[in-house]
Design a binder for these strands. Sequence first.
DNA 1: CTCCAAAACACTAACCGTTAGTGCTACGGT
DNA 2: ACCGTAGCACTAACGGTTAGTGTTTTGGAG
Lengths: 205, 205
Amino acid sequence: MTVPLGRRERKKAATRQKIADTALRLFLERGYEAVGIRDVAAEADVAVTTLFSHFASKEALVFERDDDFEQRLTGAVTDRAPGEPLVPALRREVRSMVRHCAADGAAPIFRMIDESPALREYEESMRLRHAESLAAAIGADPGLSRGTTADRAMARFVIDAYSLARAASDPDTALDEIFRMIEAAWAVARPSGDSTGDSTGEAGL
Amino acid sequence: MTVPLGRRERKKAATRQKIADTALRLFLERGYEAVGIRDVAAEADVAVTTLFSHFASKEALVFERDDDFEQRLTGAVTDRAPGEPLVPALRREVRSMVRHCAADGAAPIFRMIDESPALREYEESMRLRHAESLAAAIGADPGLSRGTTADRAMARFVIDAYSLARAASDPDTALDEIFRMIEAAWAVARPSGDSTGDSTGEAGL
DNA sequence: CTCCAAAACACTAACCGTTAGTGCTACGGT
DNA sequence: ACCGTAGCACTAACGGTTAGTGTTTTGGAG
């Protein structure tokens, strides 16, 4: 577990990285839709099947580092300062993510995403998966969880905030506004019936 | 506009309906993924290109009547009883929609959707389009709109409620819980900066 | 009624993302 | 030094989708 990366794994990682770099370069040069999988494979000097053994789909080439996003979200919940309330921690993290999208280095990539329906669609369904993880992270904290349904709703709202803020002309203001709404929603979240299956004995109030 | 449908349009509509009916029948008989476009076209006795002139994609065959969904949502906003608040009207409409999904007639279709990743993904991105329409409907009512950002967030939350309730083991309870959160969120929605680009002279307060 | 422009429809052939099938080769553990 | 595994390659195909082209149907104008 202590990173005993052998030659094989290093080579594999190198191949993966080479494919991702090549793909991103070609996409930015010629446009996402104008570049075919066969082009990327040829330019990266690998077979098409090899490319698909590293990436599940063409879109996945663009969101190579999407695990980071997921881990930052769940980390904001699990690693927050002791006693810190949930919503501000999430807001801080989401704000940082949104800003990163507009940073000089990442901006062209996100412009490309916004211009391609296929990529936008892929990103949204990726975010939905992230929401599931976030909901699980919230639900795993006994002092936090307010029932499966409320946790899931919360996670969705947070993802919505990210999505909407990124698309807004003034992301910071939009984010503040949406998180004010989220804060209010979370404040009243308190299951009444809770027939969601995980009756873990609500230690509420 | 008073339905002066000529023979041509009637024939066209009939062809479209025949394709949709055939497709749904085949999908339910053999499973969505097991049926190819060429199968549907052959069974409906049309050319593949004709099929695609009526439906934009294979998935669209399943969600043939998705306009209804959109219009019911926006209608719940625009046609609500005078003086009725927004949130209860939306909750009523969404509840009715969720129940319809579980009704005997529609249940097999929605089970098929839930079992196919392609269909689930398509549905989610369809809902996102519906959310845009809903946000526009809310924004179009001067007595309702609380700014572009809040309206959009609200629309997303409502779509989330639908999605989550449909997946919940007890949809009715889940819907109540989420809408309690939505109600609270809407209550605090009030733009402060509002530099969302459409500065149409905010008649606020 | 006749003729025209438009639109629906058909057919072929292909494009593109993706996968199955089949090996070969190089690496890591023993 | 050896063997099992896993990474990689290649061919060929599948399935959704579209371009290109030509034919039929239809509603409307004269």
